[in-house]
Design a protein around this nucleic acid. Structure first.
Lengths: 93, 93
DNA sequence: ATTATTTGGTTTATATTATAAACCGCTTTA
DNA sequence: TAAAGCGGTTTATAATATAAACCAAATAAT
């Protein structure tokens, strides 16, 4: 049985990656709403994905307010796809 | 986004359930080999699945040696199927 | 026949993880 | 100018996964 990438095998990180796979970019507030997570938890998990090189996190401004934007990287995309393939074995798909 | 049953969202427990979904029953030694897990880890995770009512664990003898046999219950089957459906959303399947 | 060794596990300790709570700086509103 | 919100981060706590240590019974070796 293939190993399941532990970085992706976490509900919140997987949800974030899943969203980012489908949109060009998404900001912190959007991800928080979509995933129904707390800000603290989301912040931590984004850091981990970022540290792993699976996403990029960039901070900018929209007017006077800060805006944190996330994108999936090529490495993240590949990791996600491999994770999906590995999971299929487990799910009998 | 649907919640992912935390009992199933664990590599080893998922592997065990995945195996049990396909065979009528499987014993401890077989599960250990197939999942490449340590006995301690497997023992703990089988207990959890059993406590949740997802599997039954029965101890018997084959000759003079003990034999621990596991089967998935109807509740386990249902939970597994729901988990798979929920995951599909995340994986974009 | 007694002393290893192996088999089939369980229990307990530890490291990792997920999660929430508390906090912080900046803005807007009262 | 105080207080309330927004957009987060940091830190503490609870839960989880995992391995290490252990145990009893059976088999093998001396």
């Amino acid at each position: 049985m293939k190993e399941l990438d532990p970085l992706l095998h976490s509900q919140l990180r997987l949800a974030v990656m899943s969203i980012l796979m489908n949109v060009d970019e998404a900001d912190f507030v959007y991800l928080k709403e979509k995933t129904e997570s707390t800000a603290g938890n989301l912040s931590v998990q984004l850091d981990k994905l970022s540290a792993a090189g699976y996403i990029t996190v960039s901070k900018g401004f929209v007017g006077k307010k800060t805006r944190t934007t996330c994108r999936v990287t090529d490495a993240g995309r590949t990791a996600f796809e491999q994770y999906v393939e590995a999971l299929k074995d487990y799910l009998n798909l």
